[in-house]
Amino acid sequence: MLYYIGRRLLQGFFVLLLVLVFTFTLPYFLPHGALNAAYFNCAEHQTKACIDTFANTYGLNQPYFQRLWHYLWGVFIHFNLGLSFKDSPPQITGILRVYIPRTFFLALSAFILATVVAIPLGIYQAWRRNRPADYWFTGVTFMMYATPPFVLGFLMLDAFAIHTFHLPDSPPLGVHPWAMFTDPKGFILPVLTLTSLQIGSYSRYMRSNVIDVLVQDYIRTARAKGCSPRQILMRHTFRNAMTSIVTVLGVSIPGLLAGAVITESVFNYPGLGLIVVQAAQDFDTMVVLGVTVVVTVMAVLGNLIADISLVFINPRIRIMGTEK
C-alpha cells in the first residue's frame, strides 16, 4: 500500500513537473516573450531604462533554462512560488496563503453537499427508472447541469439577497482564514450555486452506474433468494456502484475548481479563481503559474485519495504491487 502511494506520488510529481514546464513556457509565445510583463508594466513610458529595470528586478533577462531551473528549484525545494509583478508584498506564497483557504472551503463544502444529495438521488432515480419520479428528477438535474453557473448565481442573488430573505450577497472577506466563520450566512448562496452545478453531473453518473449494476445477475439472484428491496439496494447495489462513482468524484475535482472560478466572480469572493483571471488579464504570469501549481496539486491528491478509498470500498480491488 505504501509502495503504491509512493509510486502514485512520484507519478504526481512528474505530472506537476510537466504542467509547470508547460505553463512556464507559455508566456514565451507572447509578443515580447518573457519580457512581455515588463512592456505591459511600463505601459505609459516604454523606455529602455524602465524595461531593463523591471526585467532585472524579476530576472526576466536570464536565459530560459536558467529561469526555469531557478523556478523549479524554488518550487520544489523551498516551496517558494516566486514574485508577483503587481501585488505587494510580492511573495506569491504569501498571497496564496490568503486565497487558498477560501477556495478550498467553498469547493469542499459544495463537494460534500453535492455528494450527500446526489448519491441518494441517483440511486432513487435508478430504482424508479422510467417512472414519473425518475423523469421529474432527471428533468430537474438536467436543468441544474445545463444552467450556466453565473446565471444561476445572479438569479439566486436577485431572489434571495435582494427580493426575499436578504441573505448577504458575498461571503465574509477577511485576511485570516478564520474570518470565513464570522458570517456563515454569506456562504449559503455561493455554496448552493456551486452545489447545484455538481449535483447535475454526479446524480447522472450515479443513476447510470446503479442501472448498470441493477441488470447484473447477482441482483437477480439476490431478489430470487428473497432479499428485501432495501437489502438489495444497500448491500448489493450501493457498494458496487460506489466503485465507479468514487473514481468520478476524484476526476471531478478540476471541474469543481473551474466552477469555483465562476462562483467566485459572481459573488465577488476573491479566491484562487478570481485572482487567476485577474492575473491572466494583467499578464502577471508568475501568479498564474502559482495558482496552477496549487490547483494541480489539489487535483492530483484528489485523484490519489479517490483511488485509495476504492480499496476500502471494494475489497475485490487489489492494488498493483501489493500482491505477491
Binding site: V15, V19, T23, V251, P254, G255, L257, A258, V261, V276, V291, T292, V295, T296, A299, V300, N303
Partner: peptide, 8 residues
C-alpha cells in the same frame, strides 16, 4: 493535462 482544470 487532465489535472489542470480546463478553465484555468
Amino acid at each position: 493535462m487532465l489535472s489542470i482544470p480546463n478553465l484555468f
